[in-house]
């Protein structure tokens, strides 16, 4: 049996499941909002085991052959201290904070047990530190963009004298919601007017050399194999700073790409160093003909690479999970040609 941990609305999960069905492989899909009942988690000198209740079935660790961590978390211990209880509200808050830590620890442990199986992705390692990844990439001889993190506008001024800058989150993307409006942080170019608005000091922020892009690369990685896609975001001013600002009328050109072998080797070492057996790598190819590494996203939107490049990644993932050979060599036993 294959266990998939994901979210309810994830369409890529459905496409992978279609292939598991075609391969006649039993699977359980656990969405992060499905309540998971901790029937028993046990360990002794013979080994570890668990039995988790999900709706009306029981998932035993021993029955799991493969595990795909797509995204989300195991929804265990979804209980807080009862509202009605007559305790000091400050105390209730502290106790709930403690329960939350207990929950996270248990989730981490169960995630670890799942990842000991034939696994793609890792629920505990999904939060990687982007700055550390940059450090690892640089150490492996992969070019990175120059950056500074500072809380002083004087430093930003000085850096801006040298080269144009952009600013983005140290950790990554944020989405906020208030009064039914969505707010997010996009990558922004830094200019004098903006610096004036910030005052002389502010929250420590990341400033990065603005790369002169020829095109961007989004590279999906699946256990030793790279699936690169080039994104021509430069043709369109609306998306040239941040590719996530899609232009729906004339979407950016996206095409399959071939990486230089030398770069592939270094990226392979990087993935092993992190370590990740799947993820999406973002890079830029500059006007100066250099490959510059930006980040690795452990939970990649691989559908946006798979479909336009016809890489059949959904099938490749299903084959990985069922330990089948790469596609084309192994036709599903269920389909009929």
């Amino acid at each position: 049996m294959i266990v998939i941990l994901t979210t309810e609305d994830d369409h890529s999960t459905c496409e992978v499941i279609d292939w598991l069905i075609a391969y006649n492989k039993p699977y359980v899909r656990i969405n992060e909002n499905d309540l998971v009942d901790v029937q028993l988690v046990s360990g002794n000198n013979q080994g570890f085991d668990f039995a988790l209740g999900l709706a009306n079935r029981v998932i035993r660790l021993s029955e799991i052959e493969g595990f795909w961590f797509r995204r989300g978390w195991l929804n265990v211990g979804a209980l807080n201290l009862s509202q009605g209880i007559d305790l000091n509200p400050g105390l209730v808050r502290q106790i709930n904070r403690h329960l939350q830590k207990e929950r996270v620890e248990l989730q981490g442990f169960l995630g670890h047990l799942l990842a000991t199986k034939h696994a793609l992705g890792h629920p505990v390692k999904d939060q990687i530190n982007k700055m550390i990844t940059l450090w690892q990439a640089q150490a492996l001889g992969i070019k990175i963009p120059a950056f500074s993190i500072t809380q002083h506008s004087s430093q930003v001024q000085a850096a801006l004298q040298v080269q144009p800058l952009i600013t983005k989150g140290i950790e990554g993307v944020a989405n906020f919601e208030a009064n039914d409006e969505m707010y997010g942080n996009y990558t922004e170019e830094v200019n004098q007017n903006a610096i004036k608005c910030w005052g002389s000091s502010f929250f420590p922020s990341l400033f990065q050399e603005k790369l002169d892009k020829m095109y961007e690369l989004r590279i999906f990685y699946l256990q030793g194999k790279f699936y690169p896609m080039a994104i021509f975001s430069q043709n369109d001013p609306q998306t040239s700073v941040d590719f996530r600002r899609y232009n729906n009328e004339r979407p950016n050109r996206v095409v399959p790409y071939v990486l230089p072998v030398e770069l592939e080797h270094r990226l392979e070492k990087l993935m092993q160093a992190i370590p990740l057996n799947t993820g999406s790598i973002d890079m830029v190819y500059t006007q100066d003909n250099e490959y510059v590494f930006l980040e690795v996203n452990p939970i990649g939107q691989f559908g946006m690479v798979s479909h336009p490049c016809n890489y059949h990644l959904e099938q490749a993932i299903a084959q990985f999970l069922t330990k089948k050979l790469p596609h084309n060599e192994n036709q599903p036993n269920f389909t009929t040609n």
Binding site: I21, A22, P256, Y257, V258, N328
Partner: peptide, 16 residues
């Protein structure tokens, strides 16, 4: 140009 291969036009479907 060697970095820009043609699209693979194989067709795959999980559905019979």
């Amino acid at each position: 140009p060697e970095r820009f291969p043609a699209l693979d036009l194989t067709y795959q479907s999980a559905s019979s």
